[in-house]
């Protein structure tokens, strides 16, 4: 028996359901994206999957200057997940624009939209980098990484609502109007509603969530952290229920009313996982850690979702977004 994607029996023709989504005016053929930092700059996975079938491609975080990142060990697996402390190792803005973006342009010509993830350490730094990236043709959106737990000042903007609002405002003003601003939220906060609201007030067109959870594992024999950085960010199936919950909260308390679409991520590996995020309120979906297991994961999920949506009696994916009914609420799904 040949292992195949875990799609429901009798996969319907993909065209039967409209899978396209709209991220604040940016049209994607389907909701599936790569999560920043888990897919390099695009071409690395070209041998393993048909990248043209992605809705959008999201790059590794780019910073103004190249960064070498942390010492080894940079990753360690935990039960159902992994910790990483890469330390934003990236080629830097100049090399990205010169060497990597041209490759992404070729990819974009085949269908997927291009989203560039940007990180920085001061408002000025973010503003300059975003303005330059947004001025490039073929960049559809910028995802602001204000939530990297693995660099010294990485989390400040992501946890302080006032700072975040100001940052978003300045970045939005500096960026070309036609480029969407996506703000990636950190789960490492007391109340994510506050940072989500701040981002929206600051001018975020789209929210994406979540980045990794700050976490630690210890080598009990050496009595040392397993990662050279001490702490790392937890990702993978282990965080999925946490991510679904936070997304549900942000959708209900901020995004639904403000009409700001959300890109959901955190532990998505199968179409069933993806469906949970859609119901909780996500429009877009990103796959990170599961890409390491199988680079074709997003494509397999697209197929599974198409079949699921048809079974649920939906004509389009947009119909099902946020249609979770809590116990006590009237059902909102047209259950067959």
């Amino acid at each position: 028996m040949t292992p195949s994607s875990p799609t429901p029996a009798a996969t319907p023709p993909a065209a039967a359901v409209d899978l396209s989504i709209d991220l604040a005016g940016l049209k994607l053929a389907n909701p599936m994206m790569t999560a920043s930092g888990t897919c390099g700059y695009g071409y690395e996975y070209a041998d393993f999957t048909d990248l043209s079938r992605l809705g959008a491609f999201v790059t590794k975080s780019i910073t103004a200057e190249a960064r070498k990142g942390n010492e080894a060990y940079r990753i360690v697996e935990t039960r159902g997940g992994m910790l990483n402390a890469i330390g934003l190792a990236n080629v830097g803005l100049d090399a990205f624009l010169a060497d990597k973006l041209p490759q992404l342009r070729k990819l974009r010509a085949t269908g997927p939209r291009v989203i560039v993830n940007v990180a920085g350490h001061s408002t000025d730094d973010y503003v300059k980098t975003c303005a330059r990236v947004a001025a490039e043709p073929d960049v559809d959106a910028i995802e602001l990484n204000v939530s990297c737990p693995n660099v010294k000042d990485g989390l400040t903007f992501g946890t302080d609502p006032r700072l975040l609002r100001e940052l978003c405002r300045e970045v939005r003003t500096a960026m070309a109007k036609n480029v969407r601003l996506i703000v990636k939220l950190s789960p490492n906060v007391g109340d994510i509603v506050l940072t989500a609201r701040a981002a929206v007030e600051g001018g975020a067109d789209v929210l994406s969530m979540i980045n990794t959870y700050t976490a630690m594992t210890i080598d009990i024999h050496k009595r040392r952290p397993r990662l050279a950085n001490g702490t790392g960010g937890l990702s993978g199936p282990a965080i999925r229920p946490l991510a679904v919950y936070l997304l549900h909260r942000v959708y209900r308390h901020v995004a639904r009313e403000a009409k700001v679409p959300i890109i959901g991520m955190g532990g998505i590996q199968y179409w069933q996982d993806a469906a949970e995020f859609l119901l909780a309120g996500a429009s877009g979906l990103a796959v990170g850690t599961a890409l390491f297991v199988d680079p074709a994961t997003p494509v397999k999920i697209t197929e599974g979702l198409a079949a699921y949506l048809q079974k649920q009696g939906c004509k389009s994916l947009r119909e099902i977004v946020g249609t979770l009914a809590l116990h006590g609420e009237p059902p909102v799904t047209p259950y067959p």
């Binding site: 888990t38 590794k60 990483n84 890469i86 190792a89």
Partner: peptide, 16 residues
């Protein structure tokens, strides 16, 4: 040898 997640140059974990 180094601890690896992807094995194909995307995750930046296997540095030497």
């Amino acid at each position: 040898e180094q601890a690896m997640a992807c094995g194909m140059g995307t995750c930046q974990s296997c540095i030497v």
